[in-house]
Structure formats: C-alpha cells, structure tokens
Design a protein around this nucleic acid. Structure first.
Lengths: 208, 208
DNA sequence: CAAAATACCATACATTTGTATGGCAAATTA
DNA sequence: TAATTTGCCATACAAATGTATGGTATTTTG
C-alpha cells in the first residue's frame, strides 16, 4: 500500500491539521470545499477517502466534523530545508532547498514559514542546539527578546533580537559570542523572520 | 442583566467546556441532549440561548457545533474547596466544603476531581506555594514522581509520590522537611488522588 | 397573588452534512 | 498502448443539525 500523499492531498491534510490544531475544530466537507474553491463537496469527500486509505486521518462515519488525525507518529511530512544558518558566525544561505527533513506536522508550521538548520552553539542557553531545525515565519513583526533569523552579507544567522534607538542588536545566548550590532543605515542586513518553533530529531544527528 | 447561571445551565456549560477543552470539539445539540437524558434537542437549544444571553458562550448560527466559549476571563465558576492539605505537616481535612473559590474553568477540572487548598511551603521547589489550590483527580493511578494528595490519620498531605519495594515514600520538594515513609501494612494511610493542576489567584491571598 | 423566569416536552421545517453513484479529462503507471 | 490513478464535476438522498413555535408544570421574583 502506497503511503505517499499527492500534493493536493497533502495540501488538504495540511488544511485539516491547520484547522484542528489552530481553530480547534475539524472543518466540514463544505468548509474544505469552500476553502479550496471546489464547487462540490464530493470532491473533498473523495480526497478524504484517499487520505484515509493512506492512513493519515480517520473518519467517524455519519458524524459532522468527525475527522480525526491518526497516530501522530505518522505525521512526518518531508519539508525542504532552505539553508543553514549560524547561531555562532554567519553561514551561507542557499536559494533552493539543500535538504529535506521529516518534520512532524504537530510541530505546527504555518503555511508561509520555512525551515533552516542551525549550526553552532551560540544559542545553547536558549535550548537551541546545533543540528536543530528552526521554523521561521517571515510575516511577523519582531519584538525585543524574540529569536529571529536574519541575513548579513549573504549569510544567515539566528540570534536574539533587540531593537535600540539607532541600532539593532543581535545577541547570542552564549557568552562566548559577541553581539552583532547593526546600525540603522546598514543596508545589507535583512531580517528574514521570527523563529516560531524549534524541532529536534532524536535520531542520530549529523550536526556540525 | 443577570449574569448568574442556574445550576443546570452551569452543568451544561461545564459539559461544553469539558468537551471543547477535553475532546477538542464542541458537541451538537443532540449530543448534549443525549448526555443529560433530554428527549429533545429543543431543550438544549433553549439552555444554550439562556447561557448565550448571559454571555458565557457564543453561537455561530447555522453552523454545526458552532459554539464558542466567550472571553475566558468570564469563566470563573465557584467551586467548593473540600479541605486544606499540608505540604509541610499534615493538616485537618474536612468532610464538607470549607470555602469556595472562583476557579477559572479554563483550568480544566475533570468532573470527578475536587479542590484542596495547600498550606505550608514544603513543595515550593515544585512551584506549589502556600495558598495555592490544587486540583485532585481521585481516579488516576499514581506514578513515581507525581504529586499526590493523601490522608494520614485523618489529616491530609500533598507530597511527591514514590513507591518502593515494601514502602511508599512521600517526599517534600523542600529539604527542610523529611520524607514520610509508609510501610505497606500501615492501614490508616489512604491515597486521595493525583494532583492534576494548580491554580493560584493573583489577588491578595490570605495564606498561612 | 400575579408575572416572569425556568425547565422540560412535542412537532415541524429548512439547511447542513455525510454519503453514494456516475461521468469525464488529464496524469501516471504497467 | 492499455489500465489505473488522480482530480474534478453533477445529481440525489437519508440522516443529522440548528431553528422556530407552542404547550405545560414548577419555581422564582416583584
């Protein structure tokens, strides 16, 4: 039995997870159809059947909104890793995916977010270690003290963010590393996004 | 406008919260009716209207399971406190309620659980302080390391639970207090239940 | 006491919802 | 190439669901 979801099926599953984890309650067929622009519930119904057959959801027959997510272990979806970022010193960020990781979808990843793998230990006191995958949301305003991903001269870093009067400070949680200070005018600095989550695979990790 | 819920209305609201917080999805009218033994959905429907009018829930018209809990701050429901327990030395336990507290129902309290007020500071290293209210579930099996409530010679204690070969140890998180050791045969010891939650009112507390 | 609120019942009805069935074009697989 | 899967449409239908309306007995309130 093939357990690979098609693109559309994964989109629908993502929407399901999004609703269940986010809004708290599973959508109806009609709501899903509406969201994806289907003119018909039957289409969604058939997608559900396909997804259920592949073991990702379970339908409680006859019950409205009776969709359950199956065993969470199954919810590992391959996602592209867009690059590596340095928690210590800046590293390269790649335009395209350099790798994929099996990310548990419970580690809720907003649609507009992406993944970066952390190298270095400058954030170890914030419980982010080398080899960890950070989930970055580019559509959030950073608040002081939050951990952000940023690009400096075509390299990327993950640091804790502090905005001051005329400069921005990116500091490490590890005293071995000095803060990076960016003056307002400094242009080659670009904030990539807020780190909204960290995932660590407990399997063997080939971290650097 | 009166904001007091009647007994039945509160029961229904409790059931709603129970389902939403516990099962994750709001029940339908039929399910509520079934649970309370009503032969009719209309009865529940009318209760919902009453509860909504008093501002505790919000109905999304026409939507199945379209019940939302209104602002969480509103969810302070008086619950009886059944006694006081010592985190340090045993205190008296009362057969009936000695007091009531406005417990936020978000602090999910299973139907079979009850409340005890903690006195003493022997659990301060587990972040439970004098004056805190602990929610005790009597229907769970204790695992080593969990915090339990127990009765010793008509007095009650809240301690961390460890089961050994021939004895049970109730230890404090505070080194100032010595562990209580109960031999298997010791009969006047009775486990009351597992502490499933702690609530602390940030208003002034008249702790001991 | 009279009026209002409460707590339940019954019946009726329009939608919503899940499900079943058949059809069709495009992509994938054998 | 033939067969299968995928992705979508349409129609139909029974059951579930929310809603409306009216009724009755009890309790609470003014």
């Amino acid at each position: 039995m093939k357990k690979e979801l098609t693109t559309i099926q994964r989109d629908i599953l993502d929407f399901l997870i999004d609703q269940i984890k986010g809004k708290g309650i599973p959508p109806t067929l009609a709501e899903v159809a509406d969201h994806f622009g289907y003119r018909n519930r039957a289409t969604v119904q058939q997608h559900f059947s396909a997804i259920e057959k592949k073991g990702f959801i379970k339908k409680n027959p006859k019950l409205s909104r009776g969709i359950e997510l199956t065993l969470e272990d199954k919810f590992f979806v391959p996602k592209p890793i867009l690059g590596e970022v340095a928690a210590g010193n800046p590293l390269t960020i790649y335009p395209d995916a350099i790798d994929t990781i099996e990310l548990p979808t419970i580690a809720r990843m907003p649609k507009d977010s992406f993944l970066l793998r952390v190298k270095g230990d400058s954030l170890k006191d914030a419980y982010i270690f080398s080899g960890d995958i950070v989930i970055v949301n580019p559509n959030l305003e950073p608040k002081n003290g939050q951990i952000v991903a940023a690009v400096l001269d075509d390299a990327a870093v993950v640091k804790r963010f502090y905005k001051k009067k005329n400069e921005i400070e990116l500091i490490s949680e590890n005293p071995d590393y000095k803060p990076i200070i960016i003056e307002k005018k400094y242009s080659s600095f670009k904030l990539v996004g807020i780190v909204v989550g960290v995932y660590r695979s407990m399997e063997k990790k080939k971290a650097g």
